[in-house]
Structures are given as C-alpha cells and as structure tokens.
C-alpha cells in the first residue's frame, strides 16, 4: 500500500462543481492510486499543504466555473516556496472562456506551471495512461 502513488485532487477557488471531482476520485482509486480528495472550494494553500503532508506525487486541479486562470495564479510558486516545486501538476475542467482557441488556453495554463492541461469532457481513461507514464509506472 505504501508503494502506491499519491494524488491530491480538488476543485480550486470558489468553485462548487462537485460531480467531476467525485468521478475522478473513484476512477483514480480504481486505477490503483492513493487519492487525497480535498473536494470543492479548495484554496491554493490547502493544495500545497496537503501535498506536503502526504508527500504527494501529483496534484490534479479542476476548475469549472470560468475563473480558473485567476485562481491558479501563483500556485506553482507557492509549491516552489514549500520545497516541492517540481511536483507533477495537471489541470482540467472548463478552462475555455468564450471562443478562445484550445491551443491558446493550453499554452496559458502551461505558462502558469501546469504540466498537462485538459479540455472539457476529458474522460479519466484519457488521462490515466499519460499519468502513469509521467510518474514512471
């Protein structure tokens, strides 16, 4: 059990969309990960602290309500500050606002420190193989 990879999961900011978060929790667990689900309304501080205490291998951020860009600003920097700056970090949900191009959005969030960025209606099975590869399992 101790050798399982640990993922910290949560919906960032003032965002209450709970359904996708629950689905991700179950899917990642079934795929053999140790999941620390922080639920909805999660602050940057909570992500950082949970990752630190659990020695997490990756952070999976969701944002649905359209304010993701503002909410995640500074998260990578906070992780660096806490001494876990090189942790793997993904984001998904509803990151597109209005009629933005996906490549533009993806680029923006990569600039903000995310290793992978996922468009709306991404399914867990689209993510899990990549996650395993990124974590070297």
């Amino acid at each position: 059990m101790e050798s399982k990879k640990t993922l910290v999961l949560g919906v960032i900011g003032s965002d209450v969309h709970a359904v996708g978060n629950k689905i991700l929790e179950v899917s990642f667990q079934e795929a053999g990960f140790n999941v620390v689900n922080l639920g909805v309304l999660v602050s940057q501080k909570e992500f950082v602290e949970a990752a630190l205490e659990t020695n997490a291998d990756a952070i999976m951020v969701s944002s649905l309500y359209g304010h993701g860009e503002i909410d995640v600003r500074g998260l990578r920097e906070a992780l660096i500050e806490a001494g876990i700056g090189d942790i793997l970090m993904y984001i998904g949900g509803y990151l597109v606002v209005g009629s933005q191009e996906w490549s533009e959005v993806e680029n923006k969030f990569k600039q903000l420190g995310f290793d992978r960025v996922y468009p709306p209606s991404t399914l867990p099975e689209d993510v899990i193989p990549t996650l395993r590869a990124d974590l070297g399992i």
């Binding site: 101790e2 640990t6 659990t54 020695n55 997490a56």
Partner: peptide, 9 residues
C-alpha cells in the same frame, strides 16, 4: 508528529 501515513518522512 508530521506527515500523514505513507506521506512526508
């Protein structure tokens, strides 16, 4: 104290 079980050591 410090670290959850299986967490930070």
């Amino acid at each position: 104290a410090g670290g959850t079980d299986g967490g930070n050591t």
